[in-house]
Simulated assay, not measured.
Amino acid sequence: MKVLVTARLPEAVVGKIREAGHEVDMHLHMAPLERDQLLNRMEGVAGLLSTITDRIDGEVFDRAPGLRVVANYGVGFDHIDVAEATRRGILVTNTPGVLTDATADLTFALILAVARRVVEGDHRTRSGKFQFWAPLHFLGTEVSGKTLGIVGLGRIGRAVARRARGFDMQVLYTARKPLGRDEEERLGVRFAPLDQLLARSDFVSLHVPLTPETHHLIGARELSLMKPFAYLINTARGPVVDETALLEALRQRRIGGAGLDVYENEPQLTPGLADLQNVVLLPHVGSATVETRTRMAQMAVENLLAGLSGHRPPHGLNWEAVQGKRGKGR
């Protein structure tokens, strides 16, 4: 069967698709596949290994009537119309769990970077502006002993909570369903409704998926509840934050700063955001370690091959529903 891989992946991993007897069409450039190119290359495709930069919807499905599986290279799948895929009997998979530690590590990198003005200090030193040491010069804020608010206590949120222990931080969390007391004790966390968490935290870290309910979860009202010296960290999805409202809060110093790895209209930034010194901006690198990205590719290929062979994939999002559709005839 024909497989389209929309991003350049390690040949050792992609080779397993060929070893299984399938034809592979892989996008070889580093830049994402353009929309028209994606549509044009869908003809005859039975398996699609796509990434978070690809919008996978009915228009894509129309180009490949024989499409059996969409194997997403990534955890989030808000860019895939899963409901439409299910209606058409197309299996959708993702790669959960594998990027937990890498993203949690990056979350703390951002916390430390904004609190201690790491990026700003690097720029100042490189430009030759480091000319003296003084007691009140270039002050940041300590991380140890502060209160960390985690919005969304899934795999990554829990990993961030575990790392916070090493900094003796008090950890608050909010989630759709609070943990039991024993589990809270084990993780060293305490539940707080979102408004209380925002008001009490020195650092607020977002770890929720993008859904209609979480779109602009953090807007002008929520930012106004934060302490004037608190920091917002987002390694989840860009549209969880109203970026225009965040820009104004940062400009007016209503919060201390922010650390962002994702953006509302990625890869574009809200005009003016890049001009601010109290925000650290990264190019969506939460999972960008050799170990994690390789394992993501391996998981995506495993899901793809299972789906093409009619077997249950390790990480199917709609397996049961699709089986029901196929049982009734696609």
Rank of each mutant, 00 (worst) to 15 (best):
E185D: 14
E185Q: 14
E185Y: 05
R186Q: 14
R186K: 15
R186A: 08
R186M: 11
R186W: 14
L187E: 06
L187R: 07
L187P: 12
L187W: 12
G188V: 07
G188K: 08
G188H: 14
G188T: 05
V189L: 08
V189H: 11
V189T: 02
V189R: 09
R190E: 13
R190N: 09
F191W: 15
F191R: 04
F191M: 07
F191Y: 15
F191V: 01
A192R: 15
A192N: 08
A192S: 14
A192Y: 13
A192T: 06
P193V: 09
P193S: 09
P193N: 11
P193H: 13
P193L: 09
P193I: 06
L194Y: 01
L194C: 05
L194A: 00
D195H: 15
D195F: 04
Q196F: 03
Q196V: 06
Q196T: 02
Q196R: 14
Q196M: 12
L197E: 12
L197A: 06
L197C: 04
L197M: 14
L198I: 03
L198G: 00
L198K: 03
L198S: 00
L198C: 02
A199R: 15
A199E: 15
A199D: 09
R200T: 11
R200C: 07
R200L: 15
S201A: 15
S201H: 12
S201C: 13
D202Q: 04
D202Y: 13
D202L: 02
F203V: 03
F203D: 06
F203H: 05
F203Q: 02
F203G: 02
V204D: 01
V204G: 02
V204Y: 09
V204E: 02
V204W: 03
S205L: 09
L206P: 10
L206G: 00
L206N: 01
L206C: 06
L206A: 02
L206H: 01
H207Q: 00
H207R: 00
H207M: 05
V208W: 13
V208N: 00
V208S: 00
V208G: 05
V208M: 10
P209G: 04
P209E: 07
P209K: 04
L210M: 11
L210S: 03
L210V: 06
L210P: 10
L210Q: 05
L210H: 08
T211A: 07
T211F: 08
T211L: 15
T211H: 10
P212T: 04
P212C: 08
P212L: 07
P212A: 06
P212D: 14
P212K: 09
P212Q: 14
P212R: 10
P212H: 03
P212S: 08
E213W: 09
E213A: 03
E213G: 04
E213K: 06
E213I: 01
E213Y: 08
T214M: 14
T214H: 00
T214I: 11
H215K: 00
H215W: 12
H215E: 04
H215M: 06
H215G: 07
H215T: 03
H216D: 13
H216C: 01
H216N: 13
H216Q: 14
L217T: 00
L217E: 08
L217W: 11
L217R: 12
I218R: 04
I218F: 13
I218C: 11
I218Y: 13
I218A: 12
